[in-house]
Design a binder for these strands. Sequence first.
DNA 1: CGCCATGTGGAATATTTGTTCCATTTTGGT
DNA 2: ACCAAAATGGAACAAATATTCCACATGGCG
Lengths: 276, 276
Amino acid sequence: MSDHPHAQEAPGSVSELLERLDGAIDSFPKRLKQCASFTRRHLHLIAVSTVSEMAKACDVAPSVYMRFCQALGFSGYAELQGLFRARFAEFRPDYEVRLASLHEDGAIATSRLLTDFAEAGHKSLLSIANTVTSDVLDRIARGMASARVVHLVGLRRAFAVVSNMSYLLDKLGVPANLHYGAGMLNAHGAIFPGDVLFAVTFAPFSDETVRLAEAAAKRGITVYGLTDSEHCPVAEWATEMLIAREDEVAGFRALNAAITLTTTLAVSIRTLQQQS
Amino acid sequence: MSDHPHAQEAPGSVSELLERLDGAIDSFPKRLKQCASFTRRHLHLIAVSTVSEMAKACDVAPSVYMRFCQALGFSGYAELQGLFRARFAEFRPDYEVRLASLHEDGAIATSRLLTDFAEAGHKSLLSIANTVTSDVLDRIARGMASARVVHLVGLRRAFAVVSNMSYLLDKLGVPANLHYGAGMLNAHGAIFPGDVLFAVTFAPFSDETVRLAEAAAKRGITVYGLTDSEHCPVAEWATEMLIAREDEVAGFRALNAAITLTTTLAVSIRTLQQQS
DNA sequence: CGCCATGTGGAATATTTGTTCCATTTTGGT
DNA sequence: ACCAAAATGGAACAAATATTCCACATGGCG
Protein backbone atom coordinates (compact mmCIF):
# COMPACT_ATOMS: atom_id res chain seq x y z
CA MET A 1 0.00 0.00 0.00
CA SER A 2 2.74 2.42 -0.90
CA ASP A 3 2.38 5.86 -2.42
CA HIS A 4 4.31 4.76 -5.45
CA PRO A 5 3.11 2.08 -7.82
CA HIS A 6 6.31 0.06 -7.55
CA ALA A 7 8.08 0.71 -4.32
CA GLN A 8 11.75 0.01 -4.94
CA GLU A 9 14.82 -0.65 -2.91
CA ALA A 10 17.26 2.23 -2.85
CA PRO A 11 20.25 1.69 -5.15
CA GLY A 12 23.20 0.59 -3.07
CA SER A 13 25.95 1.46 -5.51
CA VAL A 14 26.72 3.94 -8.24
CA SER A 15 26.22 1.23 -10.84
CA GLU A 16 22.76 0.44 -9.60
CA LEU A 17 21.92 4.10 -9.52
CA LEU A 18 22.99 4.56 -13.12
CA GLU A 19 20.97 1.58 -14.22
CA ARG A 20 17.88 2.80 -12.49
CA LEU A 21 18.38 6.24 -13.91
CA ASP A 22 18.58 4.86 -17.42
CA GLY A 23 15.65 2.56 -16.90
CA ALA A 24 13.32 5.10 -15.38
CA ILE A 25 14.05 8.24 -17.35
CA ASP A 26 11.45 7.55 -20.01
CA SER A 27 8.63 7.15 -17.55
CA PHE A 28 9.44 10.42 -15.78
CA PRO A 29 7.48 13.63 -16.21
CA LYS A 30 9.20 16.72 -17.57
CA ARG A 31 10.78 18.08 -14.41
CA LEU A 32 12.03 14.73 -13.20
CA LYS A 33 13.55 14.16 -16.62
CA GLN A 34 15.46 17.40 -16.22
CA CYS A 35 16.78 16.17 -12.90
CA ALA A 36 17.70 12.80 -14.33
CA SER A 37 19.59 14.09 -17.32
CA PHE A 38 21.53 16.73 -15.48
CA THR A 39 22.30 14.39 -12.62
CA ARG A 40 23.42 11.70 -15.02
CA ARG A 41 25.99 14.06 -16.47
CA HIS A 42 27.14 15.59 -13.23
CA LEU A 43 27.09 12.77 -10.76
CA HIS A 44 30.24 14.09 -9.17
CA LEU A 45 28.45 17.20 -7.99
CA ILE A 46 26.18 15.29 -5.66
CA ALA A 47 28.85 14.69 -3.06
CA VAL A 48 29.61 18.39 -2.68
CA SER A 49 26.28 20.09 -3.28
CA THR A 50 23.12 20.77 -1.32
CA VAL A 51 19.65 19.91 -2.62
CA SER A 52 19.00 23.52 -3.46
CA GLU A 53 22.20 23.73 -5.44
CA MET A 54 21.42 20.60 -7.39
CA ALA A 55 17.85 21.76 -7.92
CA LYS A 56 19.03 25.13 -9.17
CA ALA A 57 21.53 23.49 -11.51
CA CYS A 58 18.72 21.35 -12.91
CA ASP A 59 16.53 24.42 -13.04
CA VAL A 60 13.82 22.96 -10.86
CA ALA A 61 12.45 23.67 -7.36
CA PRO A 62 14.16 21.93 -4.43
CA SER A 63 11.03 19.97 -3.69
CA VAL A 64 11.10 18.57 -7.21
CA TYR A 65 14.64 17.32 -6.72
CA MET A 66 13.46 15.78 -3.51
CA ARG A 67 10.77 13.86 -5.35
CA PHE A 68 13.37 12.86 -7.89
CA CYS A 69 15.42 11.23 -5.16
CA GLN A 70 12.38 9.41 -3.88
CA ALA A 71 11.38 8.29 -7.35
CA LEU A 72 14.73 6.54 -7.53
CA GLY A 73 13.97 4.68 -4.34
CA PHE A 74 15.92 6.81 -1.88
CA SER A 75 14.35 8.12 1.27
CA GLY A 76 15.62 11.56 0.35
CA TYR A 77 18.59 13.57 -0.85
CA ALA A 78 20.69 12.68 2.15
CA GLU A 79 20.60 9.01 1.27
CA LEU A 80 21.48 9.65 -2.36
CA GLN A 81 24.36 11.85 -1.28
CA GLY A 82 25.49 9.15 1.10
CA LEU A 83 26.19 6.93 -1.88
CA PHE A 84 28.77 9.41 -3.11
CA ARG A 85 30.28 10.25 0.21
CA ALA A 86 30.47 6.65 1.33
CA ARG A 87 33.87 6.12 -0.24
CA PHE A 88 35.37 8.29 2.40
CA ALA A 89 34.64 5.71 5.00
CA GLU A 90 38.17 4.75 3.95
CA PHE A 91 39.31 6.59 7.07
CA ARG A 92 39.94 3.49 9.09
CA PRO A 93 39.25 0.89 6.46
CA ASP A 94 39.93 -2.17 8.60
CA TYR A 95 42.17 -3.11 5.78
CA GLU A 96 43.09 -6.44 7.30
CA VAL A 97 39.50 -7.43 7.77
CA ARG A 98 38.61 -6.78 4.15
CA LEU A 99 41.58 -8.76 2.97
CA ALA A 100 40.63 -11.69 5.11
CA SER A 101 37.02 -11.71 4.03
CA LEU A 102 38.21 -11.60 0.49
CA HIS A 103 39.65 -15.06 0.33
CA GLU A 104 37.36 -16.79 2.72
CA ASP A 105 35.12 -17.89 -0.13
CA GLY A 106 36.71 -18.13 -3.56
CA ALA A 107 33.67 -18.63 -5.76
CA ILE A 108 31.77 -15.71 -4.34
CA ALA A 109 34.92 -13.64 -4.08
CA THR A 110 35.55 -13.54 -7.81
CA SER A 111 32.11 -12.26 -8.64
CA ARG A 112 32.24 -9.74 -5.84
CA LEU A 113 35.66 -8.63 -6.91
CA LEU A 114 34.37 -7.56 -10.29
CA THR A 115 31.57 -5.47 -8.87
CA ASP A 116 33.94 -4.04 -6.29
CA PHE A 117 36.40 -2.96 -8.95
CA ALA A 118 33.64 -1.56 -11.12
CA GLU A 119 32.40 0.41 -8.16
CA ALA A 120 35.89 1.62 -7.34
CA GLY A 121 36.21 2.65 -10.97
CA HIS A 122 33.04 4.70 -10.81
CA LYS A 123 34.33 6.46 -7.77
CA SER A 124 37.74 7.11 -9.25
CA LEU A 125 36.09 8.72 -12.25
CA LEU A 126 33.99 10.91 -10.00
CA SER A 127 37.08 11.89 -8.13
CA ILE A 128 38.95 13.26 -11.15
CA ALA A 129 35.98 15.40 -12.08
CA ASN A 130 36.17 16.79 -8.58
CA THR A 131 39.89 17.33 -8.23
CA VAL A 132 41.16 18.18 -11.69
CA THR A 133 40.47 21.64 -12.96
CA SER A 134 40.13 21.86 -16.68
CA ASP A 135 42.46 24.81 -17.04
CA VAL A 136 45.40 22.76 -15.78
CA LEU A 137 44.56 20.10 -18.32
CA ASP A 138 44.23 22.76 -20.95
CA ARG A 139 47.62 24.28 -20.20
CA ILE A 140 49.28 20.88 -20.35
CA ALA A 141 47.56 20.15 -23.65
CA ARG A 142 48.84 23.42 -25.09
CA GLY A 143 52.33 22.77 -23.78
CA MET A 144 52.41 19.33 -25.37
CA ALA A 145 50.92 20.43 -28.64
CA SER A 146 53.66 22.99 -29.13
CA ALA A 147 56.57 20.92 -27.84
CA ARG A 148 59.39 19.86 -30.08
CA VAL A 149 59.23 16.37 -28.61
CA VAL A 150 57.15 15.03 -25.72
CA HIS A 151 59.15 12.70 -23.49
CA LEU A 152 57.19 10.14 -21.54
CA VAL A 153 58.42 8.39 -18.44
CA GLY A 154 56.65 6.05 -16.06
CA LEU A 155 57.82 2.84 -14.48
CA ARG A 156 56.08 -0.18 -13.00
CA ARG A 157 52.44 0.59 -12.39
CA ALA A 158 52.74 3.85 -14.27
CA PHE A 159 54.19 2.25 -17.36
CA ALA A 160 50.82 1.22 -18.76
CA VAL A 161 49.71 4.82 -18.51
CA VAL A 162 52.62 6.26 -20.45
CA SER A 163 52.61 3.49 -23.02
CA ASN A 164 48.97 4.27 -23.68
CA MET A 165 49.85 7.93 -23.90
CA SER A 166 52.64 7.14 -26.29
CA TYR A 167 50.19 5.33 -28.55
CA LEU A 168 47.73 8.21 -28.46
CA LEU A 169 50.30 10.93 -29.14
CA ASP A 170 51.62 8.91 -32.00
CA LYS A 171 48.18 8.66 -33.49
CA LEU A 172 47.83 12.42 -33.19
CA GLY A 173 51.12 13.13 -34.88
CA VAL A 174 52.67 14.62 -31.77
CA PRO A 175 56.36 13.66 -31.65
CA ALA A 176 56.72 11.49 -28.56
CA ASN A 177 59.49 9.50 -27.00
CA LEU A 178 58.74 6.74 -24.52
CA HIS A 179 61.57 6.18 -22.06
CA TYR A 180 61.94 2.55 -21.14
CA GLY A 181 63.62 0.47 -18.67
CA ALA A 182 65.48 0.57 -15.40
CA GLY A 183 68.72 2.49 -15.30
CA MET A 184 68.35 3.57 -18.88
CA LEU A 185 66.69 6.90 -18.35
CA ASN A 186 68.99 9.33 -19.97
CA ALA A 187 68.05 12.96 -19.73
CA HIS A 188 71.20 14.37 -21.23
CA GLY A 189 71.40 12.33 -24.33
CA ALA A 190 67.97 12.88 -25.74
CA ILE A 191 66.14 15.74 -24.12
CA PHE A 192 66.67 19.18 -25.65
CA PRO A 193 65.35 22.68 -25.01
CA GLY A 194 61.85 23.06 -26.41
CA ASP A 195 60.96 19.53 -25.33
CA VAL A 196 58.58 18.74 -22.52
CA LEU A 197 58.62 15.84 -20.11
CA PHE A 198 55.49 14.06 -18.94
CA ALA A 199 56.31 12.04 -15.83
CA VAL A 200 53.90 9.55 -14.27
CA THR A 201 54.54 7.97 -10.91
CA PHE A 202 52.34 6.58 -8.18
CA ALA A 203 53.09 6.13 -4.50
CA PRO A 204 55.59 4.76 -3.54
CA PHE A 205 57.28 7.02 -6.03
CA SER A 206 59.92 5.70 -8.33
CA ASP A 207 63.28 7.30 -7.70
CA GLU A 208 64.31 7.13 -11.31
CA THR A 209 61.25 8.96 -12.52
CA VAL A 210 61.71 11.66 -9.93
CA ARG A 211 65.38 12.06 -10.79
CA LEU A 212 64.64 12.33 -14.48
CA ALA A 213 62.09 15.04 -13.74
CA GLU A 214 64.64 16.84 -11.61
CA ALA A 215 67.36 16.62 -14.22
CA ALA A 216 65.02 17.85 -16.93
CA ALA A 217 63.70 20.73 -14.84
CA LYS A 218 67.23 21.83 -13.99
CA ARG A 219 68.02 22.01 -17.68
CA GLY A 220 65.04 24.27 -18.24
CA ILE A 221 62.74 21.63 -19.69
CA THR A 222 59.05 22.02 -18.88
CA VAL A 223 57.88 19.12 -16.71
CA TYR A 224 54.32 17.92 -16.29
CA GLY A 225 53.45 15.32 -13.69
CA LEU A 226 50.67 12.80 -13.15
CA THR A 227 50.36 11.04 -9.82
CA ASP A 228 47.87 9.77 -7.27
CA SER A 229 48.77 11.77 -4.19
CA GLU A 230 49.51 15.30 -3.08
CA HIS A 231 52.92 14.29 -1.82
CA CYS A 232 54.51 13.33 -5.06
CA PRO A 233 58.11 14.61 -5.17
CA VAL A 234 57.79 15.32 -8.90
CA ALA A 235 55.61 18.28 -7.91
CA GLU A 236 58.73 20.16 -6.90
CA TRP A 237 59.99 20.10 -10.48
CA ALA A 238 56.75 20.25 -12.38
CA THR A 239 55.12 23.26 -13.96
CA GLU A 240 51.72 21.54 -13.74
CA MET A 241 50.59 18.51 -11.76
CA LEU A 242 47.63 16.23 -12.29
CA ILE A 243 46.34 14.18 -9.42
CA ALA A 244 44.33 11.09 -10.23
CA ARG A 245 43.18 9.49 -7.03
CA GLU A 246 42.22 5.86 -7.44
CA ASP A 247 39.89 3.98 -5.20
CA GLU A 248 41.32 0.71 -4.07
CA VAL A 249 39.94 -2.78 -3.63
CA ALA A 250 41.78 -5.02 -1.21
CA GLY A 251 44.92 -2.94 -1.58
CA PHE A 252 44.86 -3.02 -5.38
CA ARG A 253 44.10 -0.06 -7.58
CA ALA A 254 43.11 -0.04 -11.20
CA LEU A 255 44.13 2.83 -13.46
CA ASN A 256 40.77 4.26 -14.42
CA ALA A 257 41.41 7.82 -13.34
CA ALA A 258 44.90 8.05 -14.80
CA ILE A 259 43.94 6.47 -18.12
CA THR A 260 40.88 8.66 -18.43
CA LEU A 261 42.89 11.77 -17.70
CA THR A 262 45.61 11.00 -20.19
CA THR A 263 43.09 10.07 -22.85
CA THR A 264 41.28 13.34 -22.28
CA LEU A 265 44.60 15.10 -22.54
CA ALA A 266 45.30 13.50 -25.88
CA VAL A 267 41.92 14.36 -27.33
CA SER A 268 42.27 17.83 -25.96
CA ILE A 269 45.47 18.21 -27.95
CA ARG A 270 43.59 17.18 -31.04
CA THR A 271 41.01 19.86 -30.40
CA LEU A 272 43.80 22.42 -30.29
CA GLN A 273 45.23 21.11 -33.53
CA GLN A 274 41.90 21.46 -35.25
CA GLN A 275 41.44 25.02 -34.10
CA SER A 276 44.65 26.26 -35.63
CA MET B 1 43.13 44.23 18.63
CA SER B 2 42.06 40.78 17.52
CA ASP B 3 41.70 37.71 19.67
CA HIS B 4 44.56 36.03 17.91
CA PRO B 5 48.10 37.33 18.10
CA HIS B 6 48.60 37.53 14.37
CA ALA B 7 45.29 37.92 12.64
CA GLN B 8 45.71 36.58 9.13
CA GLU B 9 43.79 36.72 5.92
CA ALA B 10 42.05 33.48 5.04
CA PRO B 11 43.88 31.46 2.38
CA GLY B 12 42.18 32.00 -0.97
CA SER B 13 43.45 28.90 -2.72
CA VAL B 14 44.50 25.39 -1.94
CA SER B 15 48.14 26.28 -2.52
CA GLU B 16 47.97 29.10 -0.02
CA LEU B 17 46.30 26.81 2.44
CA LEU B 18 49.06 24.25 2.08
CA GLU B 19 51.73 26.87 2.58
CA ARG B 20 50.11 28.14 5.69
CA LEU B 21 49.64 24.61 6.94
CA ASP B 22 53.30 23.85 6.49
CA GLY B 23 54.37 27.14 8.00
CA ALA B 24 52.18 26.95 11.06
CA ILE B 25 52.32 23.31 12.01
CA ASP B 26 55.35 23.68 14.26
CA SER B 27 53.79 26.39 16.36
CA PHE B 28 50.62 24.40 16.94
CA PRO B 29 49.79 22.59 20.15
CA LYS B 30 49.27 18.86 20.15
CA ARG B 31 45.65 18.66 19.05
CA LEU B 32 45.98 21.24 16.34
CA LYS B 33 49.01 19.38 15.03
CA GLN B 34 46.85 16.29 14.74
CA CYS B 35 44.34 18.26 12.72
CA ALA B 36 47.03 19.74 10.53
CA SER B 37 48.77 16.51 9.71
CA PHE B 38 45.63 14.54 8.97
CA THR B 39 44.14 17.37 6.99
CA ARG B 40 47.34 17.79 5.02
CA ARG B 41 47.14 14.19 3.93
CA HIS B 42 43.44 14.08 3.25
CA LEU B 43 42.60 17.43 1.77
CA HIS B 44 40.16 15.85 -0.62
CA LEU B 45 37.94 14.83 2.27
CA ILE B 46 37.11 18.38 3.26
CA ALA B 47 34.73 18.95 0.38
CA VAL B 48 32.54 16.03 1.35
CA SER B 49 32.77 15.83 5.12
CA THR B 50 31.21 17.59 8.09
CA VAL B 51 33.24 19.08 10.92
CA SER B 52 32.37 16.22 13.19
CA GLU B 53 33.55 13.73 10.60
CA MET B 54 36.84 15.51 10.09
CA ALA B 55 37.25 15.93 13.83
CA LYS B 56 36.58 12.26 14.39
CA ALA B 57 39.03 11.29 11.68
CA CYS B 58 41.67 13.48 13.35
CA ASP B 59 40.67 12.00 16.69
CA VAL B 60 39.83 15.36 18.24
CA ALA B 61 36.66 17.09 19.44
CA PRO B 62 34.68 19.09 16.87
CA SER B 63 35.41 22.29 18.72
CA VAL B 64 39.12 21.64 18.33
CA TYR B 65 38.75 21.29 14.59
CA MET B 66 36.84 24.53 14.65
CA ARG B 67 39.73 26.28 16.34
CA PHE B 68 42.04 24.69 13.82
CA CYS B 69 40.11 26.35 11.00
CA GLN B 70 40.31 29.67 12.77
CA ALA B 71 44.00 29.30 13.48
CA LEU B 72 44.49 29.06 9.71
CA GLY B 73 42.69 32.34 9.24
CA PHE B 74 39.26 31.07 8.28
CA SER B 75 36.14 32.27 10.01
CA GLY B 76 35.14 28.66 10.48
CA TYR B 77 34.82 25.26 8.86
CA ALA B 78 32.31 26.46 6.32
CA GLU B 79 34.79 28.89 4.84
CA LEU B 80 37.53 26.29 4.67
CA GLN B 81 35.14 23.90 2.99
CA GLY B 82 34.15 26.62 0.57
CA LEU B 83 37.69 26.59 -0.77
CA PHE B 84 37.20 23.02 -1.91
CA ARG B 85 33.70 23.39 -3.19
CA ALA B 86 34.20 26.71 -4.90
CA ARG B 87 35.57 25.33 -8.12
CA PHE B 88 32.31 23.62 -8.87
CA ALA B 89 30.64 26.94 -9.38
CA GLU B 90 31.88 26.67 -12.93
CA PHE B 91 29.48 23.82 -13.48
CA ARG B 92 26.45 25.81 -12.55
CA PRO B 93 25.82 27.51 -15.91
CA ASP B 94 23.32 25.51 -17.82
CA TYR B 95 24.82 22.64 -19.68
CA GLU B 96 23.13 23.24 -23.01
CA VAL B 97 24.52 26.75 -23.15
CA ARG B 98 28.04 25.46 -22.62
CA LEU B 99 27.59 22.97 -25.40
CA ALA B 100 27.07 25.78 -27.88
CA SER B 101 30.15 27.64 -26.72
CA LEU B 102 32.45 24.68 -27.11
CA HIS B 103 34.84 26.39 -29.45
CA GLU B 104 35.02 29.79 -27.89
CA ASP B 105 37.26 28.84 -25.00
CA GLY B 106 39.77 26.04 -24.81
CA ALA B 107 39.39 25.41 -21.11
CA ILE B 108 35.66 24.96 -21.45
CA ALA B 109 36.13 22.51 -24.29
CA THR B 110 38.62 20.60 -22.20
CA SER B 111 36.31 20.54 -19.23
CA ARG B 112 33.58 19.19 -21.44
CA LEU B 113 35.89 16.48 -22.71
CA LEU B 114 36.75 15.42 -19.22
CA THR B 115 33.13 15.00 -18.19
CA ASP B 116 32.44 13.19 -21.45
CA PHE B 117 35.25 10.74 -20.88
CA ALA B 118 34.22 10.23 -17.28
CA GLU B 119 30.75 9.49 -18.55
CA ALA B 120 32.05 7.08 -21.15
CA GLY B 121 34.04 5.42 -18.37
CA HIS B 122 30.92 4.95 -16.28
CA LYS B 123 29.16 3.30 -19.18
CA SER B 124 32.09 1.05 -19.92
CA LEU B 125 32.19 -0.12 -16.32
CA LEU B 126 28.47 -0.78 -16.34
CA SER B 127 28.87 -2.79 -19.46
CA ILE B 128 31.42 -5.21 -18.04
CA ALA B 129 29.32 -5.78 -14.96
CA ASN B 130 26.50 -6.73 -17.27
CA THR B 131 28.29 -8.83 -19.85
CA VAL B 132 31.08 -10.59 -18.02
CA THR B 133 30.08 -13.50 -15.86
CA SER B 134 32.28 -14.19 -12.92
CA ASP B 135 32.69 -17.87 -13.68
CA VAL B 136 34.52 -17.08 -16.90
CA LEU B 137 36.78 -14.76 -14.98
CA ASP B 138 37.21 -17.40 -12.33
CA ARG B 139 38.18 -20.09 -14.85
CA ILE B 140 40.72 -17.80 -16.48
CA ALA B 141 42.16 -16.92 -13.10
CA ARG B 142 42.57 -20.60 -12.26
CA GLY B 143 44.11 -21.30 -15.64
CA MET B 144 46.64 -18.54 -15.19
CA ALA B 145 47.45 -19.39 -11.61
CA SER B 146 48.43 -22.92 -12.57
CA ALA B 147 50.19 -22.14 -15.83
CA ARG B 148 53.88 -22.78 -16.27
CA VAL B 149 54.25 -19.38 -17.92
CA VAL B 150 51.58 -16.85 -18.90
CA HIS B 151 52.33 -15.29 -22.27
CA LEU B 152 50.88 -11.85 -22.87
CA VAL B 153 50.34 -10.33 -26.25
CA GLY B 154 48.65 -7.08 -27.24
CA LEU B 155 49.71 -4.45 -29.75
CA ARG B 156 48.98 -0.77 -30.23
CA ARG B 157 46.01 0.21 -28.14
CA ALA B 158 46.01 -3.13 -26.37
CA PHE B 159 49.63 -2.85 -25.34
CA ALA B 160 48.90 -0.73 -22.29
CA VAL B 161 46.50 -3.40 -21.10
CA VAL B 162 48.98 -6.25 -21.35
CA SER B 163 51.84 -4.24 -19.93
CA ASN B 164 49.68 -3.48 -16.92
CA MET B 165 48.82 -7.14 -16.69
CA SER B 166 52.48 -8.02 -16.90
CA TYR B 167 53.20 -5.74 -13.97
CA LEU B 168 50.41 -7.24 -11.90
CA LEU B 169 51.32 -10.85 -12.61
CA ASP B 170 54.89 -10.09 -11.74
CA LYS B 171 53.83 -8.63 -8.43
CA LEU B 172 51.84 -11.79 -7.74
CA GLY B 173 54.72 -14.07 -8.56
CA VAL B 174 53.00 -15.56 -11.60
CA PRO B 175 55.59 -16.26 -14.29
CA ALA B 176 54.68 -13.96 -17.17
CA ASN B 177 56.19 -13.14 -20.49
CA LEU B 178 55.24 -9.96 -22.31
CA HIS B 179 55.62 -10.26 -26.07
CA TYR B 180 56.80 -7.04 -27.63
CA GLY B 181 57.11 -5.54 -30.98
CA ALA B 182 55.90 -5.87 -34.52
CA GLY B 183 56.95 -8.92 -36.47
CA MET B 184 58.76 -10.38 -33.53
CA LEU B 185 56.02 -12.53 -32.07
CA ASN B 186 57.44 -15.96 -31.99
CA ALA B 187 55.17 -18.70 -30.88
CA HIS B 188 57.43 -21.55 -31.65
CA GLY B 189 60.54 -20.41 -29.90
CA ALA B 190 59.16 -19.64 -26.48
CA ILE B 191 55.74 -21.11 -25.88
CA PHE B 192 55.63 -24.62 -24.48
CA PRO B 193 52.94 -27.05 -23.38
CA GLY B 194 51.58 -26.09 -19.98
CA ASP B 195 51.79 -22.41 -20.84
CA VAL B 196 48.78 -20.22 -21.46
CA LEU B 197 48.42 -17.28 -23.81
CA PHE B 198 46.45 -14.18 -22.93
CA ALA B 199 45.75 -12.23 -26.11
CA VAL B 200 44.28 -8.74 -26.13
CA THR B 201 43.15 -7.04 -29.30
CA PHE B 202 40.58 -4.39 -30.10
CA ALA B 203 38.85 -3.68 -33.38
CA PRO B 204 40.33 -3.36 -35.95
CA PHE B 205 42.04 -6.52 -34.85
CA SER B 206 45.74 -6.90 -35.14
CA ASP B 207 46.68 -9.66 -37.51
CA GLU B 208 49.77 -10.54 -35.60
CA THR B 209 47.93 -11.05 -32.34
CA VAL B 210 45.34 -13.24 -34.05
CA ARG B 211 47.99 -15.30 -35.77
CA LEU B 212 49.86 -15.85 -32.54
CA ALA B 213 46.65 -17.04 -30.88
CA GLU B 214 46.03 -19.38 -33.77
CA ALA B 215 49.53 -20.81 -33.73
CA ALA B 216 49.39 -21.33 -29.98
CA ALA B 217 45.98 -22.98 -30.09
CA LYS B 218 47.12 -25.34 -32.82
CA ARG B 219 49.97 -26.45 -30.63
CA GLY B 220 47.56 -27.25 -27.81
CA ILE B 221 48.22 -24.16 -25.74
CA THR B 222 45.27 -22.77 -23.82
CA VAL B 223 44.33 -19.34 -25.19
CA TYR B 224 42.35 -16.68 -23.37
CA GLY B 225 41.21 -13.56 -25.20
CA LEU B 226 40.18 -10.06 -24.25
CA THR B 227 38.56 -7.80 -26.82
CA ASP B 228 35.87 -5.19 -27.30
CA SER B 229 33.56 -6.86 -29.76
CA GLU B 230 31.81 -10.16 -30.42
CA HIS B 231 33.45 -10.48 -33.81
CA CYS B 232 36.98 -10.84 -32.62
CA PRO B 233 38.75 -13.55 -34.64
CA VAL B 234 40.68 -14.63 -31.56
CA ALA B 235 37.43 -16.15 -30.29
CA GLU B 236 37.86 -19.01 -32.72
CA TRP B 237 41.05 -20.11 -30.98
CA ALA B 238 40.29 -19.15 -27.42
CA THR B 239 39.09 -21.38 -24.60
CA GLU B 240 37.57 -18.36 -22.86
CA MET B 241 36.81 -14.88 -24.13
CA LEU B 242 36.30 -11.67 -22.23
CA ILE B 243 34.45 -8.84 -23.91
CA ALA B 244 35.03 -5.33 -22.60
CA ARG B 245 32.95 -2.86 -24.54
CA GLU B 246 34.32 0.65 -24.33
CA ASP B 247 32.26 3.74 -24.93
CA GLU B 248 33.82 6.29 -27.20
CA VAL B 249 34.13 10.06 -27.16
CA ALA B 250 34.85 11.78 -30.44
CA GLY B 251 36.17 8.55 -31.88
CA PHE B 252 38.51 7.91 -28.97
CA ARG B 253 38.14 5.19 -26.40
CA ALA B 254 39.75 4.99 -23.00
CA LEU B 255 40.59 1.60 -21.51
CA ASN B 256 38.49 1.60 -18.39
CA ALA B 257 36.68 -1.67 -18.98
CA ALA B 258 39.74 -3.60 -20.12
CA ILE B 259 41.96 -2.32 -17.31
CA THR B 260 39.30 -3.02 -14.72
CA LEU B 261 38.78 -6.53 -16.00
CA THR B 262 42.46 -7.37 -16.04
CA THR B 263 43.02 -5.91 -12.60
CA THR B 264 40.14 -7.96 -11.30
CA LEU B 265 41.65 -11.00 -12.91
CA ALA B 266 44.96 -10.40 -11.19
CA VAL B 267 43.45 -9.93 -7.76
CA SER B 268 41.34 -12.97 -8.37
CA ILE B 269 44.51 -14.97 -8.94
CA ARG B 270 45.84 -13.74 -5.67
CA THR B 271 42.71 -14.91 -3.95
CA LEU B 272 43.32 -18.39 -5.34
CA GLN B 273 46.93 -18.32 -4.15
CA GLN B 274 45.89 -17.44 -0.64
CA GLN B 275 43.45 -20.30 -0.50
CA SER B 276 45.98 -22.97 -1.21
C1' DC C 1 -16.21 22.52 -21.77
C1' DG C 2 -15.42 20.93 -17.15
C1' DC C 3 -13.70 17.30 -14.23
C1' DC C 4 -10.19 14.41 -12.30
C1' DA C 5 -5.50 12.81 -11.98
C1' DT C 6 -1.09 14.26 -12.05
C1' DG C 7 2.53 17.39 -11.77
C1' DT C 8 4.55 21.60 -9.67
C1' DG C 9 6.75 25.03 -6.60
C1' DG C 10 6.61 28.06 -2.60
C1' DA C 11 6.33 28.23 2.21
C1' DA C 12 6.37 25.83 6.88
C1' DT C 13 8.69 22.47 9.66
C1' DA C 14 12.06 19.18 11.33
C1' DT C 15 16.74 17.80 11.39
C1' DT C 16 21.31 18.22 10.92
C1' DT C 17 25.40 20.84 11.13
C1' DG C 18 28.32 24.72 12.29
C1' DT C 19 29.77 27.67 15.88
C1' DT C 20 30.51 29.61 20.45
C1' DC C 21 30.94 29.33 25.40
C1' DC C 22 32.80 27.94 29.58
C1' DA C 23 34.09 24.71 33.21
C1' DT C 24 37.85 21.56 33.66
C1' DT C 25 42.45 19.79 32.64
C1' DT C 26 47.05 20.22 31.23
C1' DT C 27 51.40 22.60 30.60
C1' DG C 28 55.43 25.31 31.69
C1' DG C 29 57.79 28.49 34.44
C1' DT C 30 59.64 29.79 39.13
C1' DA D 1 54.80 22.29 44.52
C1' DC D 2 52.34 26.31 43.16
C1' DC D 3 50.39 29.52 40.01
C1' DA D 4 49.22 31.54 35.65
C1' DA D 5 48.46 30.82 30.87
C1' DA D 6 47.11 27.79 27.44
C1' DA D 7 44.59 24.07 25.75
C1' DT D 8 40.81 20.97 25.77
C1' DG D 9 36.15 18.88 25.11
C1' DG D 10 31.32 18.71 26.32
C1' DA D 11 27.19 21.03 25.99
C1' DA D 12 24.26 25.04 24.63
C1' DC D 13 23.05 27.89 20.87
C1' DA D 14 22.62 29.60 16.06
C1' DA D 15 22.47 28.87 11.25
C1' DA D 16 21.85 26.17 7.33
C1' DT D 17 19.76 22.30 5.21
C1' DA D 18 16.70 18.56 4.24
C1' DT D 19 12.10 17.27 4.08
C1' DT D 20 7.11 17.62 4.03
C1' DC D 21 2.79 19.83 3.06
C1' DC D 22 -0.54 21.96 0.53
C1' DA D 23 -2.50 25.37 -2.59
C1' DC D 24 -2.21 26.03 -7.41
C1' DA D 25 -1.38 24.76 -12.32
C1' DT D 26 -1.65 21.62 -16.20
C1' DG D 27 -3.02 18.28 -19.38
C1' DG D 28 -5.75 14.33 -20.75
C1' DC D 29 -10.45 12.45 -21.25
C1' DG D 30 -15.31 11.96 -20.94
